[in-house]
Design a protein around this nucleic acid. Structure first.
Length: 1188
RNA sequence: AGUCCCGUAGCUCAGCUGGUUAGAGCGCUACACUGAUAAUGUAGAGGUCCGCGGUUCAAGUCCGCGCGGGACUACCA
């Protein structure tokens, strides 16, 4: 006959290992999905991690959250598919590979082919998949890793292309430019990641220039102030604006002011030319440019005077300045478009009065803020046409002024805007040129003048500068070349997410965010201030942008490809390896487009050349390529071209933002819409019911999922989302490999077990708070929760096996069971309810804590403790069976409730129980049905009664302690003042429980209220609305009440008071009355419960006390001698004063307790093994036991 | 700089829509209990509930302004 498994100790890591083997053998994970075939699905999306790094402990956190809700929903009967995924593209991968290979971005395509480079990336990115698999398995995260989606696979990319083509067709994609950090020295744009590398920001001294912009005398100015108009007409009114990059001044097209900032017109002099001038600047910044004494000084000034006199003559708001015009400061070039809108004052909310003048020089081509604010105001950027006819800014990609910035004296064209870009020789040559060209202005030029210095000097000389000085500031530098970066307009492809902003905001409001603030705050605000999504990345390893274009060699034609099949349908061509240029390099789309395009511009016959290439198979139809050669990465796709109207269409070189890859996963994981169309359209896998990742994904994956599904499907991508916080070390520091404080997930799970780790992470704090990860916390969880549960099971199995209990008997109706059983079952059902509600509300911490409290406090420390005797005493009676059944039910239910959080131990517990009882057909807790709440079993009054018993017990124990009377010493009685009849009946029902727990013979109910001392306290909650302001006065009066007043309220139900001049009836509901003392007794009270204890110890009680002590010593001896709990003994006790009497009176009791068939009291024990014991202080004796 | 989160005992955390002695566990001290329990019980020590203002009869709880820690975003002229 099979019996319940018994365990020596608790080894969670071992349990996890065994359970894993069981799952593997039984294919439990597969079954958990297949057994739900046809059931409603609960859709979960796995956010793809990148496997080019080792998994960390924070991944265990995030994955625990994912896993537990999926398990919970499976238990509830839903089918939960979980497809694993890998994020494989992106900069971190590339940078890692570059580092390993010792190359830089420039080497790609030269020293190493793009093909080889991408091959290296493809390998690097999956490097740690084995470790990821391992950690996933060991932590018990159920996710299908055999058929994951991988973002670099052709099918995945094809789905991404399809999505992009949909956006393209909806007119949600466009090409524009953004201002991005750009390193002219390295010839490359920099990502924000690169900009955040250490050492990037350096303190540098630059020439800063406060320039004077001459205000135009126009009608608007005249309407504003006729005096100012007059000044302007005389050329004496100027805006002043400060810049640390004077090289951007030729590109100025606007001045930006803060609408709410107060500005002033100041009458003063040009410090360099001493001309009388009126300047406009923010009032708050006057002191930056003028010494206070200047306002009193006489209004005369000669160049080089120390004190600059000034008078504030008018005050204006920023809003009033908006729309005023000024003369272009350095008119080297005019804007290409909308020139009439340039050179005016506009408003921007980024303007502060911290630095400068409160008027910001705005060059839309070299500042992101500038570009945005100018665009909003319709002010054009300063772009000119290059030789190709393309619009370009005044500085080229090498960081040098273009030729139109032609200044014979100062020599700007072709000059780099930062001196650092020049070699020493170039600098020397330029210095010699400057010496010659500037000798008229600067007779003895001693060193090279930077562009900033030259422009500043020029402005000074022309009376257009108010102040020129060196300025130290923090400026970003290129991490590769260590040269300063420029903010530069770069071509980019955008998704017009602003077009669906309102829809995204509306849809977001339907999403259940945990915590809510992440959704409304962090995410909501982000949506409110949304910018268009910059898709472009100038890299190599990623999803290529599927847009083909003709170049600037003829009319613009464009094609967005949404499926590989389209290459065939649209007659795409492929440039083979034989197709070489003059230098013998293979053509790609871009170079061939240029080659043929220039030919076309020269008027040559392109078609002939093209046809030759086709004939000689240098170019073939795409359709002729073997399928397995198609790789939707670079460089392959760069060899794919279209030929239209005598022009080559080549792919735009950009890759797309990797975040688009991951945001596309709801569709691309199924190769939608090319396959599995019904998964998405049929709702089986879209939208997700639940996703979970770290908060850092708010603007990452959460956003891209949301944006793409809003634009493509007009729907949310997920309905519930849990965003967890960070995992910090125990001191609250961020974990990092560098600091060596990163916890190793493998080590942690090996030492403490995945269950304890998971339980700790979930119950310690709500997952959205940061977790201070401390292994001491895991130890505590192990000790408290798992050991309490394990011990409860061990206790059960030990006695169940003794009694051959296998849960074969019919279930004893709850109403026939003792009160304590009804109580624990009631609590259990309340628990089921609470746990289920908490999980449903995505509050796992609440669920876990509730389970833990139940197991530790109620099941282990109350139910099992009080019921011990029922299990090991007496026959196999109905009461015993009831006890077994009750404990069984508790344990099995706990296994189910805790299974989502602690999948391994719960699995063992469940199968250990169910394996013997066979009550349920499924022998995995993760497949078995989630427990149903039996509302009829919940008895709140019973739960209250038990709480009363617990309070009373603890009061009596505290009295015993105070009087120093051991619990083993029986006492005669306790007395409890009765407040009302309900209280009395409650107490009566738990009376025996209390008495046995505190070892007292009887409980007396005292009704004579005259002997109690009572206390009274206002019920503030009830009185608040009634008396309001008078609460304090009332409270003071109630505090003064004596026993008489209290009795009056009890007797009459009310007492009339004088309150604020009028009478007030204080009724009994307005106060809380409790008994605090019974004079002459030893009393303790808590809340409304008061207990008095009779501490007289009669001789009988004393004997009984001694007998109990003896039993205890004998039991210990039995245990130490290694006797089985069922072994019977012969017992001998050495006679001592008081012992004989105690033993004789309580002989039956002692024998029954210790399973002694024979008990002898001898004057002396001869046996060597007789043990001397101390019954109580000063009373020693010897005992001897012998197994029969 | 903006947005969001967090701040309660030495440590980790509760404290629901405001209600008057602010709780639990761990740790510490002492005692007790134990034939499942390295468990548990009782008692003790330990709090300017980050600070300052405000609303209110009443604020750990609501509001405002700060401070400290963290995350994300960001071109500050």
């Amino acid at each position: 006959m099979s019996t319940f498994k018994e365990y020596d100790g608790l080894n969670l890591p071992n349990i996890a290992e065994q359970v894993l083997e069981k799952w593997k053998a039984d294919k439990t994970f597969e079954k958990s999905m297949s057994s739900r075939e046809g059931k409603p699905s609960y859709v979960f999306y796995e956010g793809p991690p990148s496997a080019n790094g080792m998994p960390g402990i924070h991944h265990v956190m995030a994955r625990t959250i994912k896993d537990l809700f999926c398990r919970f929903k499976t238990q509830q009967g839903y089918q939960v598919m979980r497809k694993a995924g890998w994020d494989t593209h992106g900069l971190p991968v590339e940078l890692g590979v570059e580092k390993e290979m010792g190359i830089t971005k420039e080497d790609i395509g030269t020293k190493i082919s793009i093909e080889d480079y991408n091959k290296a990336c493809r390998e690097a990115v999956m490097r740690y998949t084995a470790e990821w698999r391992d950690v996933t398995e060991k932590m018990g995260y159920w996710v299908d890793m055999d058929e994951p989606y991988v973002t670099y696979e052709n099918n995945y990319i094809e789905s991404v292309w399809w999505l992009l083509s949909q956006l393209y067709q909806k007119n949600l994609m466009y090409k524009g430019y953004t201002i991005q950090p750009y390193s002219p020295a390295a010839g490359t744009g920099l990502s924000s990641h690169e900009l955040n590398l250490p050492g990037t920001y350096q303190d540098v001294k630059d020439t800063s220039c406060t320039a004077l912009f001459k205000v135009k005398a126009d009608e608007k100015l005249r309407a504003l102030d006729s005096k100012l108009f007059d000044f302007a007409q005389n050329g004496r009114l100027h805006f002043v604006a400060w810049t640390t990059t004077p090289w951007t001044l030729p590109s100025n097209t606007a001045l930006t002011v803060g609408a709410k900032i107060e500005y002033v017109v100041v009458d003063t002099f040009n410090p360099y030319t001493a001309e009388s001038q009126k300047i406009i600047l923010a009032k708050a910044l006057i002191s930056k440019y003028f010494k206070a004494e200047g306002s009193d000084a006489e209004m005369t000034y000669a160049a080089s005077d120390k004190l600059l006199p000034y008078r504030v003559i008018k005050s204006l708001s920023g809003a009033e300045l908006v729309g005023l015009r000024y003369e272009q400061l350095l008119p080297y070039a005019q804007p290409l478009h909308d020139a009439e809108k340039a050179f005016q004052v506009i408003a921007g909310d980024f303007v502060t009065t911290e630095d400068g003048t409160g008027i910001v020089h705005t060059a839309p081509t070299f500042g992101a803020d500038d570009m945005q604010v100018a665009k909003a105001a319709g002010v054009p950027p300063l772009l000119v046409e290059n030789d190709n006819g393309d619009p370009v800014p005044l500085v080229d990609l090498r960081g040098r002024f273009v030729s139109v910035v032609n200044d014979t004296v100062w020599g700007l064209a072709g000059e780099p805007v930062k001196a650092e870009y020049l070699s020493d020789e170039e600098k020397e040559t330029e210095f010699q040129r400057q010496k010659e060209a500037l000798k008229e202005h600067i007779p003895n030029l001693s060193n090279y003048l930077s562009v900033d210095e030259r422009i500043s000097l020029k402005l000074k000389l022309e009376g257009k500068a108010f102040k020129v000085e060196k300025y130290q500031h923090n400026y970003p530098h290129c991490w590769r070349t260590d040269k300063p970066i420029l903010y530069y307009p770069l071509d980019s492809w955008f998704i017009k997410s602003t077009a669906v902003k309102d829809k995204m905001i509306a849809l977001n409001k339907t999403i259940n965010w945990k915590p809510e603030s992440t959704g409304t705050g962090r995410f909501g605000n982000w949506l409110e201030n949304l910018n268009d999504w910059n898709l472009s990345r100038s890299r190599y390893w990623g999803t290529p942008l599927p847009i083909w274009r003709t170049g600037p060699y003829g009319p613009l034609m464009e094609e967005c490809v949404g499926a590989v099949e389209e290459f065939t349908e649209k007659n795409a061509y492929f440039i083979t390896e034989e197709c070489l240029d003059d230098k013998g390099n293979r053509f790609d789309g871009q170079s061939l487009r240029k080659y043929l395009g220039e030919m076309r511009l020269r008027g040559e016959n392109v078609n002939n050349v093209w046809n030759d290439m086709i004939r000689s198979k240098k170019i073939i139809f795409f359709a002729m390529l073997p399928k397995d050669q198609v790789d939707l990465h670079r460089p392959f796709v760069d060899y794919v071209i279209f030929f239209r109207s005598g022009m080559v269409m080549a792919r735009e070189l950009d890759l797309i933002d990797v975040w688009f890859d991951s945001g596309a996963m709801p569709y691309a994981q199924w190769h939608y819409p090319f396959e599995n169309k019904e998964m998405v359209d049929g709702g089986k896998s879209f939208p997700a019911d639940f996703i979970a990742e770290g908060v850092d994904q708010t603007r990452g994956w959460f956003y891209t999922l949301h944006a793409i599904s809003t634009m493509i499907k007009g729907s949310v991508a997920f309905k519930n989302v849990v965003s967890n916080g960070l995992v910090l070390d125990k001191n609250g520091q961020k974990m990092s490999k560098r600091l060596g404080n990163a916890a190793d997930p493998f080590e942690t799970m090996k030492t403490y077990g995945a269950d304890a780790t998971r339980w700790y992470m979930i119950t310690n704090a709500p997952p959205w708070d940061n977790l201070k990860f401390d292994t001491d916390g895991i130890i505590e969880v192990q000790r408290k929760y798992f050991r309490a549960l394990h011990n409860s099971y061990s206790f059960f199995s030990l006695y169940a096996n003794v009694d051959n209990f296998t849960h074969a008997e019919a279930l004893i109706p709850l109403t026939d069971q003792p009160e304590i059983d009804q109580w624990v079952i009631s609590r259990l059902n309340s628990l089921i309810k609470e746990v289920e509600e908490s999980f449903e509300a995505y509050e796992p911490t609440r669920a876990g804590r509730a389970i833990q409290d139940f197991v530790v406090d109620e099941l282990s420390n109350w139910y099992v403790r009080l019921c011990r005797r029922r299990f090991w005493k007496g026959d196999y009676s109905e009461d015993k069976i009831a006890a077994y059944q009750t404990l069984y039910q508790c344990l099995v239910t706990i296994a189910k409730l805790s299974a989502p959080i602690a999948p391994f131990y719960s699995e063992q517990l469940f199968s250990d129980l169910n394996g013997i009882s066979g009550l349920e057909s499924e022998n995995s807790v993760h497949i078995a049905a989630w427990p149903k709440v039996d509302e009829s079993a919940i008895d709140e009054s019973l739960e209250q009664r038990m709480a009363l018993a617990q309070t009373t017990t603890s009061l009596v124990l505290s009295l015993r302690k105070k009087e120093n009377i051991r619990v083993r010493q029986p006492l005669q009685k306790i007395m409890v003042p009765v407040i009302n009849s309900e209280f009395e009946s409650h107490l009566k029902q738990v009376e025996s429980l209390i008495l046995s727990e505190v070892n007292v013979k009887e409980l007396e109910y005292v009704h004579d209220s005259n002997i109690f001392v009572k206390s009274i306290k206002p019920n503030f909650k009830a009185l608040g609305p009634k008396v309001g302001k008078n609460m304090k006065a009332l409270s003071a009066q109630v505090g003064q009440f004596g026993q008489d007043e209290i009795q009056q309220i009890e007797r009459e139900g009310k007492i009339t008071l004088d309150l604020d001049g009028s009478t007030f009836d204080l009724i009994s509901d307005d106060v809380e009355i409790s008994t605090k003392d019974i004079p002459g007794w030893i009393v303790a009270s808590e809340g409304s419960v008061t207990v008095a204890l009779d501490i007289t110890i009669s001789p009988e009680l004393r004997s009984e006390g001694i007998a109990r002590e003896l039993v205890n010593r004998i039991q210990n001896l039995r245990k130490d001698s290694g006797l089985e709990v069922t072994d019977r003994i012969h017992l001998m006790v050495e006679n001592q004063p008081e012992i004989e009497q105690a033993v004789n009176i309580n002989k039956n009791y002692i024998c029954a307790e210790t399973l002694a068939d024979q008990l002898l009291v001898k004057s002396e024990l001869a046996q060597d093994s007789a043990l001397e014991i101390e019954v109580e202080e000063g009373l020693k004796t010897k005992i001897f036991i012998e197994k029969i």
